[in-house]
């Protein structure tokens, strides 16, 4: 890891100012991806702006039929939260299966979605639940937020402050995980909200996305009968040592069926 200027800040405003002053700054949330990335010298920021001390970015609440989770809330806190377990139990279970206990004690919702690893779990939930990402500058819809592999709509000095999840009538997440890293080889989040069924897919392609063909097959119902007949674009699937494109396409349908069944 190359040396950098460490900047500890206590507010979103101070973090933004620190970023604007930095030559080539990076925000750090829980650091569970940022620090390994810096160790590998895949990132070498001039300034690392640590959001760990920004109290306004943590917390969980339910307001106006929305579950609002502060960006710096850890996976462990989401998993253990009685409010999340009551409001969207599938989200609590998702958070409780990210990485391992020590990683969950540091890793955060905001860090996960801002990094947008194509195999991360949270993006599938953000998309399927039709969540809104609140930042230091604006509100961004889930579908506009994730733009490509490790790419989001965030500007360089823009910080995710919270995510607002509309409460679903039913929701479930199914992940076929890599047994070593526990990242999703394929993860599918299915949610029925306001009479509409949405499918969020992660791990399968370069970018977490809505499974529109799967949604069309479901037709707004939690009935997986039509999923087998869906044809998915195999050429868009990731292919690596863990799973071929064909296998991933197959897994997307299997995980979708399991998630739909778990919603019932």
């Amino acid at each position: 890891m190359y040396e950098f200027n460490y900047r500890k800040v206590a507010s979103v405003a101070a973090a933004t100012e620190a970023m604007q002053q930095a030559e080539d700054g990076k925000f750090m949330a829980g650091g569970q991806t940022m620090l390994p990335t810096m160790k590998h010298r895949l990132a070498s920021p001039s300034d690392l702006i640590d959001l760990g001390g920004v109290a306004e970015l943590t917390g969980i609440s339910v307001e106006n039929e929305n579950l609002i989770v502060g960006a710096m809330t850890t996976h462990a806190a989401v998993a253990a939260s009685a409010e999340v377990q009551q409001a969207i139990p599938a989200l609590a279970r998702l958070a409780g299966n990210i990485g391992d206990p020590a990683v969950r004690n540091r890793g955060t919702l905001g860090g996960s979605i801002a990094n947008h690893d194509p195999a991360a779990d949270y993006p599938a939930a953000v998309i399927a639940l039709g969540a809104t990402v609140q930042t230091s500058k604006r509100a961004i819809s889930a579908e506009e937020f994730f733009t490509g592999m490790f790419e989001t709509a965030l500007e360089d000095d823009e910080i995710v402050t919270s995510v607002s999840f509309p409460l679903p009538e039913a929701a479930a997440y199914m992940k076929f995980e890599n047994p070593a890293s526990r990242y999703a080889i394929v993860g599918v989040f299915v949610a029925k909200t306001g009479g509409e069924v949405r499918v969020g897919v992660t791990g399968a392609t370069a970018c977490a996305h809505r499974g529109l063909r799967l949604e069309a097959a479901l037709g707004g119902e939690l009935d997986a009968g039509g999923i087998d007949a869906v044809e998915l674009p195999v050429e868009q699937m990731n292919s690596d040592i863990h799973a071929s494109a064909e296998y991933r396409a197959h897994l997307v349908k299997v995980m979708t069926k399991r998630a739909v069944e778990a919603c019932q």
Partner: peptide, 24 residues
């Protein structure tokens, strides 16, 4: 941050001390 040989407790919670800065 895969193997867990460096797990310690910080403020009562387990963390992987190879994936946290001393200054944090």
């Amino acid at each position: 941050s895969q193997c867990g040989a460096c797990v310690i407790h910080v403020n009562g919670k387990s963390v992987k001390s190879c994936t946290m800065l001393a200054i944090q």
